[in-house]
Structure formats: C-alpha cells, structure tokens
Simulated assay, not measured.
Amino acid sequence: MKNRIALFVFILFGQFSIDKIQAQTKTENIILVTLDGLRWQEVFGGADSTLLKNKNYTRDYDGTAASFWNDNLEVRRRMLFPFIWNVVAQNGQLHGNRNAGSKVNVANPYQFSYPGYNEMLTGYADPTVNSNDKVMNKNTNVLEFINQQKEFKGKVAVFSSWDAFPYILNEPRSGIYVNSDTDTINFKNSNLKLINDLQSLAPRPVGVRPDVITYMAGREYLKAYHPRILYIAFDETDDLAHAGMYDQYLNSAHAEDAMLADIWSIVQSNPQYKNKTTLIITCDHGRGDAIKDQWKDHGQDIKDSGETWLAVIGPDTKTMGEVKTTEQLYQRQYAATIAALLGLEFTAEHPMGKPIWDIYTK
C-alpha cells in the first residue's frame, strides 16, 4: 500500500493544498534513462555553432548543419531533441537551463561517471567513491531498496552499455537484474535471442556495446517481462565527446532522443504502463564549455563539468515545461525522489539528499 503524502508543494509531482485530503502518487512504474556526459548546453541550446564550425571536431559540417543547425535557438534544439522538446517540455518539466536561472549540479567533487552514478542512485555523494575502477559499491542504491519491497521484488531491471554498472549497482548484493555491455540475455523469447546475436556480432566503435543494442535489449525485455522499474544507461555521447567527434556526438544524442520517443510510445500504448509511468531522463556529469576545447573533457579541474540537467514526465509531474525560475537541484536528490514517486521513503545506512519536492515546500 502506497504511503500517502500530505504536503503543500510545488514540484515534480504537482501542487497540493494543505487543507485538501491527502494525495497519493499515481506512479506505479519508473523508467530511468541516462545519457552519459550529455551537456546541458546542447539540451537547451541545440548544436553549438563554435564546435559545429570547428573542423577538428566536425568532420561532416554540411551534413551535420543540415540536420541540426538553425539560427533560431528554439528551432535548433527541437531539431536535435524533438521528443524532449515536443513531448516532455509540453507535458512535463525540464530543469538545468542555467541561462534561465535553473541550476542542476552534481554534489560529488569528482565530476565523472562512477561517482556521478553512485550519487544519483544512492543519494550519497560519497567522497570515497573517487574512481571508475570496477569495484563493488558499498553504498545501498535506490533500485536495490525498491527491489526489496514485496510488490517490486524481481521487477527491477537495468540495461547498460558500460560494463561498470554491475559494480556500481553491486549486482551480487542487490539482487537486481543488470544486463551490461556484452552480457548474454539468456531468455527464451525470440526477440531477445536475436539481440544476443546482435550484441555478439556488432562492431564496437566506441569500445562498449552500441547504445541501440542496449536500448533494444531493454525495450524487448520491457515488452516480454513487464518490469516495474527499468533503467537504461546509454554511453556513446560521453565516448564520442572524449574522442572529439562533435558531429557524431550530436548524431548519437539525436538517436537517443528517438529511442526515448519509442519507449514512451510503447509505455503509453500498454495498459500496465499508460498514465502510470514516470520517465526520468538525465546524465551523470557535465563537460567543459567556458574553454571550448574542454568540451571533450570533464572532472574536477574542468569548469562547468559539474553542471547537469533533468527532464521528467509522468502522472504525478506538474506541467511546468522549461523551468525559468531560480532554483538549485542536486543529483543526490534523485534517489529519494524516485522512491517518493512510488510512494516509498528510501532509507539506507548512509546520508542522502531529500526528495526534490522538499526544496519547494512552503
């Protein structure tokens, strides 16, 4: 039975009045998608003209400009992210446009992947999580916590391109299903068998499983096994940025937006998920921008790389569109927020950020 929430809030989940009856969340399922290292500058501003015109970063200027450039900012960001701007912005919330006063930051000091995913999923910016080494995470994550609840047991699944996720989520301890990089899916479903073949035979131009195969594995698992919590972790935007391939970085980001549109279409056509599912889209860290050549990199020595963004759409999410008021959100708040959307209070042995609604409580 979901916990009832009595709050006067203005947040991701809507606006409640203190003198009305207690409200109950409508969210029964969560889909979390992360686009590794995708900058807020592209999410809110579209293609960067300086990087687009730099031949060191954009090999195919004509083709890339035809696909993603327009002098009008609102047009070009829709060209790059049509789902985010035509669907999420119209029916949900977008946070992190610093030019409009909305700030989203990581709280960990390291500003790279493992510390970022740890913070996001455990709610704790643990200073001892300071490398990308494949070591089992000692911190309890929110997916593990949800999986321990009776109604969610065995209904949490993770599909990631980067093979560090079984360690980030401590798969042996947490007991959640994590399919990562070249793992064999090993299910009888024929579509999943085909994906086994695809992931074993496909080229790996950025060194990990292509994001489209990670997505297709997660999508077909959703259709076949109906998890309550599905997390899809993309990787290519980070790898292509590190390689200095701005045109391919944009192409990958655009393709991932199309995958978001596809999974949302599937969700909204299935009675188990329709109007009962919250989709959360974000990233693990930012990248350089003040010094343009640092767009490739991130970390505590790169200015701007602690700046991120957040997009949310679902039955408990008040339609606010692009947030243009002064606010400060932190990645450490996401774990408790995910649990709260399901009517749960995430508890663990470590400190954690509060659900995002608390900063709006009157």
Score class of each variant (00 low, 15 high):
226 H>A: 11
243 A>E: 10
290 A>G: 00
274 K>Q: 09
265 S>E: 08
235 D>K: 02
203 P>H: 09
212 V>T: 07
248 Q>S: 14
236 E>H: 04
260 L>D: 13
284 D>T: 12
221 Y>A: 08
244 G>P: 07
250 L>G: 09
218 G>H: 12
228 R>I: 03
283 C>Y: 01
256 E>H: 01
258 A>K: 15
253 A>D: 05
202 A>S: 06
229 I>F: 11
244 G>D: 10
237 T>M: 05
202 A>P: 04
248 Q>P: 07
272 Q>M: 14
196 N>E: 02
243 A>P: 02
226 H>F: 08
278 T>D: 07
226 H>N: 11
238 D>L: 12
199 Q>K: 05
233 A>L: 12
221 Y>D: 07
283 C>E: 02
273 Y>H: 05
291 I>G: 05
205 P>K: 00
244 G>K: 07
200 S>F: 01
211 D>F: 13
227 P>W: 15
209 R>Q: 06
282 T>M: 09
233 A>H: 14
242 H>P: 01
278 T>P: 08
244 G>F: 10
275 N>R: 13
219 R>N: 03
232 I>G: 04
257 D>N: 13
200 S>T: 01
235 D>T: 03
245 M>C: 12
268 Q>K: 09
213 I>H: 02
272 Q>S: 14
259 M>R: 14
258 A>E: 15
226 H>V: 08
250 L>F: 13
271 P>V: 07
222 L>Y: 13
209 R>M: 07
218 G>A: 14
204 R>Q: 15
257 D>C: 07
239 D>I: 01
199 Q>G: 02
261 A>K: 01
236 E>D: 12
208 V>D: 06
273 Y>P: 05
255 A>M: 13
276 K>T: 09
257 D>Y: 09
215 Y>S: 04
237 T>L: 06
221 Y>L: 10
287 R>S: 02
226 H>K: 14
269 S>E: 03
225 Y>C: 11
199 Q>L: 03
222 L>Q: 09
238 D>V: 13
233 A>G: 14
290 A>R: 06
286 G>D: 05
209 R>I: 08
273 Y>E: 01
212 V>S: 06
196 N>F: 04
212 V>M: 04
237 T>G: 04
291 I>A: 06
276 K>Q: 12
270 N>G: 07
275 N>K: 14
212 V>D: 03
262 D>Y: 13
238 D>A: 13
252 S>D: 10
236 E>K: 00
221 Y>W: 15
260 L>C: 15
209 R>D: 00
217 A>T: 12
214 T>I: 00
277 T>M: 01
284 D>Q: 11
230 L>Y: 09
211 D>G: 13
207 G>Y: 10
203 P>N: 11
289 D>E: 00
265 S>Y: 06
207 G>I: 10
274 K>A: 07
208 V>Q: 03
276 K>A: 12
210 P>K: 02
238 D>F: 12
203 P>W: 08
257 D>M: 08
202 A>H: 01
258 A>F: 14
231 Y>N: 15
209 R>C: 02
258 A>W: 13
245 M>E: 14
233 A>T: 09
216 M>F: 11
231 Y>E: 15
287 R>V: 03
225 Y>A: 12
256 E>N: 00
215 Y>G: 00
275 N>I: 11
266 I>D: 11
224 A>L: 03
266 I>Q: 10
